[in-house]
């Protein structure tokens, strides 16, 4: 198996431009295999662009991308991507939505359902197999989406503000489910968020990006909080508050900058 020192994602000097607009000016990022990395930054700093680079949907204008040491050409077969918005197929049941990727791979439907069933249980939706997305709450739909991404067994999981639309309590529940699943089979997980609390609760390491355009990584904070973490009690501990202040020390100035830019 992969040792702890194996790098799942290596970005070296990556820059992204859209025409003459420079979204990301310089990013060096190393993600270890099995590491849970949170990326925080002000709105519009190119966080999502980073994920598109890692999936291979977007080519960098400069720099190199390597996945498990191999340069990335074309699409990344090792990654699974969970989007911010609701993306379930409304005409398929929860069970069929979970097994969707398997069906796309050519697996027979009956077999895909058999594989999907335990995943639905893992995200706490036993008994909801035949519900359609419109019959599920926002949080339940997110759980189906989570199972849909993870069932494919991606070695690198990418999540782009997946829980930003949920209320605080539902979000905490999602954090607990996500951490449990991640603990089970440690994959690399890159989690994009603008919520510091969420970042610290989940991550092994928080990377802070500067305000765009031309954003870059301005610092990182390791999160040495022991695992498994108690999601609901964590936020009030002294260590947590200390880490929060440390990350905010990096991020706060950038947020101010992006506010100022938005005003002009």
């Amino acid at each position: 198996m992969d040792g702890p020192s194996v790098l799942s994602v290596t970005l070296s000097g990556v820059a992204v431009r859209f025409g003459r607009f420079t979204a990301v000016s310089w990013v060096d990022l190393h993600v270890r295999s099995g590491e849970l990395l949170a990326v925080v930054g002000p709105t519009g700093c190119g966080k999502s662009t980073l994920l598109n680079i890692i999936t291979g949907l977007q080519r960098p204008a400069a720099g190199t991308v390597a996945i498990f040491g191999k340069p990335l050409t074309g699409l990344n077969d090792d990654s699974g991507y969970m989007l911010q918005q609701d993306a379930l197929l409304p005409w398929k049941t929860a069970l069929d939505n979970v097994g969707l990727g398997l069906i796309f791979q050519g697996m027979p439907v009956a077999q895909a359902r058999e594989r999907a069933l335990p995943w639905l249980r893992k995200v706490g939706l036993e008994g909801f197999e035949s519900r359609y997305p419109h019959q599920l709450s926002g949080g339940q739909r997110k759980r189906v989406a989570m199972a849909q991404t993870l069932i494919m067994g991606p070695k690198i999981v990418l999540m782009d503000e997946p829980f930003s639309a949920l209320d605080v309590h539902t979000r905490r529940l999602m954090h607990r489910i996500l951490l449990d699943l991640w603990q089970e089979e440690r994959r690399s997980l890159i989690f994009i968020t603008h919520d510091l609390e969420e970042a610290i609760t989940l991550a092994d390491r928080v990377v802070v990006m500067s305000a765009g355009p031309g954003s870059r990584i301005i610092g990182e904070v390791p999160i040495p909080l022991p695992r498994p973490r108690n999601v609901s009690a964590l936020a009030t501990t002294d260590e947590f508050l200390h880490l929060y202040r440390e990350v905010w020390g990096l991020l706060g100035a950038e947020v101010e900058k992006s506010y100022a830019a938005a005003r002009h």
Partner: peptide, 23 residues
Amino acid sequence: VVLANARLLKASRLALLRHVYLP
């Protein structure tokens, strides 16, 4: 968004037609 997600799950053109466009 649904379409992008299906593509991210590596749906082929035929699968997109059958599971996304047709329904």
